[in-house]
């Protein structure tokens, strides 16, 4: 399974988490590698909702070029089996309904502002619509607390994206570590299978990403 890319900045040249899969215990390997194969068919979202969800999640996760992590399918699969985080804000519906309501509201915003559905808006227009929701903070957005909607979107989105080995390659994280463990913890200490950051002072905080 080498060749999974997604290394946008090549901070970890040649690093490929999945190349180490033979070192993982079989239960973990089964769980992680399943994310690389075909995802289960959609069942929670309608096709139209699914399209809005995919466009929204790609915006939130900065996915603008192939290969893409199938975040919308992963979110859909969770909602289909009601795999929530175990809580909801009192002013929000259950997660599944909250996704439906917020996708519909986003589509309405797109129509009102750009005269087109969210999916057919340009990436720049989509970004503006998403930014507008974040900018509301704890204000009202179509009868929902905007920050609670944001929390729902970003939580589900990041959980899907950063569970994918393609995302781990991008950040230098080697993934599963059983039964192998680590032998070289400590500052600037690497395992043989880890790759040093090629741009260590490329600090997005300092440089204002």
């Amino acid at each position: 399974m080498t060749g999974i890319s997604g290394r946008r900045r090549e901070r970890f040249p040649g690093f490929d988490v999945v190349a180490q899969a033979s070192k993982w215990d079989p239960v973990t390997a089964g769980s992680v590698l399943a994310r690389l194969g075909p995802q289960p068919d959609v069942s929670f979202f309608t096709p139209a909702e699914r399209a809005v969800a995919a466009a929204l999640l790609d915006q939130l996760l900065g996915q603008h070029e192939e290969p893409l992590v199938p975040a919308a399918q992963m979110v859909d699969a969770r909602l289909a089996v009601r795999q929530t985080d175990g809580w909801r804000y009192e002013d929000m519906p259950e997660d599944g309904q909250a996704w439906r309501d917020s996708l519909s509201a986003l589509d309405a915003d797109a129509d009102g502002r750009f005269g087109s559905g969210f999916v057919t808006c340009s990436p720049k227009e989509q970004a503006a619509l998403v930014q507008a929701v974040q900018d509301l903070g704890s204000g009202d957005w179509h009868g929902l607390v905007a920050s609670h909607v944001w929390s729902l979107w970003i939580r589900y989105g990041c959980t899907a994206f950063y569970s994918h080995p393609q995302a781990w390659n991008e950040i230098g994280f080697p993934g599963p570590a059983y039964p192998r463990g680590y032998k070289n913890p400590g500052i600037d200490a690497l395992e043989p299978f880890e790759v040093r950051d090629a741009q260590p002072s490329d600090n997005p905080v300092r440089d204002g990403a």
């Binding site: 900045r9 939130l60 996760l61 970004a127 974040q134 970003i154 990041c158 569970s163 991008e170 994280f173």
Partner: peptide, 25 residues
């Protein structure tokens, strides 16, 4: 990483900025 993404997202980052910050993990 997933929990770390909560830290980065809590700073308000999303989209390309989120990915940039995360690559610094």
């Amino acid at each position: 990483p997933i929990t770390w993404a909560e830290h980065v997202a809590a700073q308000g980052h999303w989209g390309p900025a989120l990915r940039e910050y995360m690559s610094d993990y």
